[in-house]
Design a protein around this nucleic acid. Sequence first.
DNA 1: ATGAAAGCGCTAACAT
DNA 2: ATGTTAGCGCTTTCAT
Lengths: 346, 346
Amino acid sequence: MNRYGLYGKVDDMVSIKDIAKQAGMSTSTVSRVVNGKKYVNQEKRQRILKLIEETGYVPNNAARSMVLQRSFAVGIVISDTFNMFQQELFSIIERYLEIFGYHTLFFFVKFEDTSEEACLTKLKAEKLDGLIMLYEIKNPVFYEYLIKTGLPVVTATFHYPGIPSIHVNEEQASMDAVNHLINLGHRKIVMISGDGFTFGRQRAEGFFQALTAADIILEEGGIVFVRHYTPEFGMYGMRELLLRKKVGRDFTAIFAATDELAIGAIRALRDEGIRVPEDISVVGFDDIDIADYINPRLTTIRQPMKEMGEQTALTLHRSISGETNKTESQTLSYKLIIRESTMALV
Amino acid sequence: MNRYGLYGKVDDMVSIKDIAKQAGMSTSTVSRVVNGKKYVNQEKRQRILKLIEETGYVPNNAARSMVLQRSFAVGIVISDTFNMFQQELFSIIERYLEIFGYHTLFFFVKFEDTSEEACLTKLKAEKLDGLIMLYEIKNPVFYEYLIKTGLPVVTATFHYPGIPSIHVNEEQASMDAVNHLINLGHRKIVMISGDGFTFGRQRAEGFFQALTAADIILEEGGIVFVRHYTPEFGMYGMRELLLRKKVGRDFTAIFAATDELAIGAIRALRDEGIRVPEDISVVGFDDIDIADYINPRLTTIRQPMKEMGEQTALTLHRSISGETNKTESQTLSYKLIIRESTMALV
DNA sequence: ATGAAAGCGCTAACAT
DNA sequence: ATGTTAGCGCTTTCAT
């Protein structure tokens, strides 16, 4: 190992000094050119530009970040097992962030307990301009740090007191989903949700409320909470429900807290020869891309992903830029998408 | 805007100086403690450790990266519209990279022409320890730069001359997939692939070869190349095929270059009332998680994702560490997974 | 309009 | 065992 890099090759990275030397000028002048400042002679500017072009010079981020005391980078905190909805969302966010001129740093948090702490440590090591949270960290210390340092933050798909968030009214949306089932004549409705995050509880809450509003009494064991919002766990959840309840007699419809849960549930039903929607209607939540391609095509709640991503990035950008228009949380509108997985009770 | 950060709050980031001052020692000593070096008095070490704990001090990455002339970060170049296979793959890679002590920087490349260039520029701005490519950059200049600088690189799922890669024998695997169909009695087989990347052509090549080996002549128009490997384009591709060919008479089976293409194809077939596998057998490629959950469950080629991810990370790590055991490319073994979407021709 | 010099936070070589 | 110092690449006063 030598100063030219670990792998024993000469690090022929060109620096601002190289450009300056070759141009016969000072680094200050080069810096001015690079940053498009005024007060540089046109000829010299051209010469430097040419040199930059030829050498492929790009300013070093770390050095830049040091002097400027900022990184032009925003962090995105996300589950390392992000689901399709989250993927689509962060792809959109990332694209907007790039438009606004930020780099994006991902902080994947794993399901283990130590991971949230590790995430905070990694965060601190960067001079982030801002942070977007797509994963609901549980440890309050994390939020305390964010608030203490005054780092601009926005959360999406969940809310934490004192931090602007972009989200949908989960309860309301879930009520709409369940009401769709009720309007179709279903009275015996069960649910699969997850115990992991707030949205899982909120969606369950909406489920309860819709039932209550329709004077339906949820039977004992009519809801299961699984560990992850994946097809696999949707399948497990459905199997559990099937053990507890008899199709037709005990339930004719099911509300899954996410599309992926719904997909797993449908498979479990199919494994038992139960047809969707003829025997059981299924409604999901999120409207991930694939929801329109599976068999049967899934009835679900569409979250306005594009708008969510855009607003999340924009809100953060405004917060970073110091536009102090008290960026409050935004509740975006969702939409019930009726497809093939639900039908009227016969 | 002030020197305390853009957003007008005091940047109470603690630095090594703060710790040193509070401890009444020099920054060198603190640095030694932070980096677990020897030659520090036990008492002092304890005191410093306590201070670090209390203040929540974490060394600044940018500064570290500057002196050390390396970042402890490896870049991952990936499509901004990465598919499920790629997602699963990079999640695994990211996990191993973390185990090896690297940060991960993502470089999303978009479909636009300018994006590859922009990616290279962003790359240069970082003092990366290494690079993993999951997206097949077309511009040779990119590779030239990598080779010229001697940056450790490994590509996964594709190969570029002179750069170690981790992959599967795409042609062979495709031949196996098609042979499965042939063994089932199918002789009239069509294909949907994409024109984007090498693997799309390789999979098509395997398709041709399997046909040739079985003395089957591919009819004109029996293969369509779509723009993206998504369900949506799988649907378009299938519709095109349906326009050209008559089910049963002209084809009884289809090979899709990816599972996502297969999923879209199946939906297009269903839209026309054509049953899978009764009327048409379908085989995909990748074995993404969802392949086992859709209806019908998909017959496909399983790529050894876990092993690919592990080997990719490991190979890069070795390359960075200077273990010069000429890390050659590795061809990993795949497996045909037979599920419900294929059946014997009746 | 341009350059010299200081300094961002950190590590390592050198001195003690 | 510990401190002093130089310097990583860059930007920005401050002179000129």
